[in-house]
Amino acid sequence: MSIVKRRFFAGFMGQQTKWLNSMAEKGYRLVKTGKLEYVFDECEPGKYVYTVEYVGDRSLEEEEKYKAFLEDIGYQVFYKNMNLAYSTNKLTFRPWADKGGKFSTLKTTFNKELLIVEKENDGKPFQLHTEKQDQIDYYNRMNQPWYFAMFMALLLAVIYWPNLLPTAICGSLAVIFMLPVIIMTFKIRKLKKEKELEE
């Protein structure tokens, strides 16, 4: 029997992973994703494990190549949106993306910012990025949209100057956008230190 759940995790990938894994433990396996909907079928509890990966910096071609690679490995892969947009003719500028992914539309990479990856539970932790350098690159890629958002907010704050209210709002936004960058930068620094010793 299928059940439908509605959730929206935006960029909180860790939360999304946890939730999918808790559903799997209860005996629900993901079969379909929509913008807010997750469709599950009943399965043996704990048979599958999930992880969520950010791929919003890739072009459609790159995303599909990567997805096909993961499917070849034997994983089940779903696209998932990180944002909510209900327009039909959306075009987004992503200066941080790969060549071919800089302008994202509904036909290409829009609403495909994340991959949900499922594998059969073999008792080992499910990690796609195990190499330190690869993890560093991954965090750097996740940082890029935040840097861009921060830069835009700062730019607006300067443009609105000396209009106190909009300047204050844009300035605070810039500070908020800076938080994930700080967290990830700490992670990157830690990885770099470990890497110096191990490789």
């Binding site: 990567y66 993961l70 994983y75 990856v117 990690q127 796609l128 990025h129 195990t130 690869d134």
Partner: peptide, 9 residues
């Protein structure tokens, strides 16, 4: 242990 994402790269 080599993860699939690292292997892809």
């Amino acid at each position: 242990i080599l993860g699939a994402g690292s292997l892809y790269g």
